[in-house]
């Protein structure tokens, strides 16, 4: 009998323990301090991943036989604004990409100007933070060529990508550091699988930053702003999902 009681107490204690563990985890999860402690692991990921390899290592490229039958779209599937719809109706002939902020020679590129520049085509794997992957062939202008024309000022540390779409009323934006900006696979893509990028995948211009997760690959890009700090953009965390969903700014894992 005594043993039964002990066992019963044990089970009850166990259940209670499990319950309080769970609610404890939730409380911790909601605490900003604890979030920051957990977030330190992400800093470690960033440092270690950048330390491995020669920092300009290429993401895997595939052959045409490896393409996903359908390249999934996620997030905004159509910005849906009158301006965007009007531009789409004329094949984005009036689309402009503005390079502003800490550049010595700020630039405005028309879509036609971008198409006339040297291009890079790459078949890469797009990894979503949710866990799925899709392989697609992207063609676009290496970002480096645009930066060489606009010439960064010495104080520039990040590039912010402004987009035509809004999610939940806020403009979508993303940012990368200069290491990724000058990476050979970082391109402003306008073709997917040999055709103009479909609207649901970010027409007419989408950033490809192949060593990071999908939410970094800003769609419907209208501007690239060179900044010294991310503090003054959006809520200061460097991107829409970083601000709204608490995702990490560095999305290498």
């Amino acid at each position: 009998m005594r043993k039964m009681l002990t066992r019963r107490t044990l089970i009850a204690t166990g259940a209670l323990g499990a319950g309080s563990l769970l609610s404890g985890c939730d409380a911790l999860s909601r605490s900003q301090t604890f979030q920051n402690i957990l977030g330190s692991a992400e800093d470690a990921n960033f440092l270690v991943q950048r330390a491995l390899g020669d920092r300009m290592e290429l993401a895997s490229e595939y052959s045409i036989n490896d393409l996903s039958p359908k390249f999934r779209a996620n997030g905004t599937r159509d910005p849906g604004t009158p301006d965007y719809a009007a531009s789409a109706a004329q094949g984005f002939a009036d689309w402009q990409l503005r390079l502003t902020g800490l550049f010595k020679k700020p630039q405005i590129f028309s879509l036609a100007a971008l198409l006339s520049m040297p291009q890079r085509t790459q078949i890469t794997r797009h990894d979503c933070v949710e866990g799925w992957s899709a392989i697609g062939q992207w063609t676009g202008v290496p970002l480096k060529l645009l930066l060489d024309l606009a010439q960064l000022q010495d104080s520039a540390k990040f590039l912010v990508f402004h987009c035509a779409d809004r999610l939940g009323g806020r403009p979508y934006y993303e940012s990368i550091d200069l290491l990724d900006a000058f990476h050979p696979q970082t391109i402003m893509a306008h073709r997917l699988n040999g055709e103009s990028v479909p609207i649901e995948n970010g027409a007419p211009l989408r950033l490809r930053v192949e060593r990071q997760l999908g939410y970094k690959h800003a769609k419907y890009v209208t501007g690239i702003e060179a900044v010294a700090t991310l503090d003054n953009v959006g809520e200061g965390k460097g991107g829409y999902w970083e601000d709204v969903g608490n995702y990490e700014w560095y999305a290498g894992i």
């Binding site: 499990a18 985890c25 939730d26 999860s29 979030q35 977030g39 692991a41 999902w241 608490n246 990490e248």
Partner: peptide, 21 residues
Amino acid sequence: PGWATIPSYYSLAEGRRWHFF
């Protein structure tokens, strides 16, 4: 279900932070 996950509500960002730490 919530009793099997951390946090018990759905948050991919928080789940990832716990996981990587």
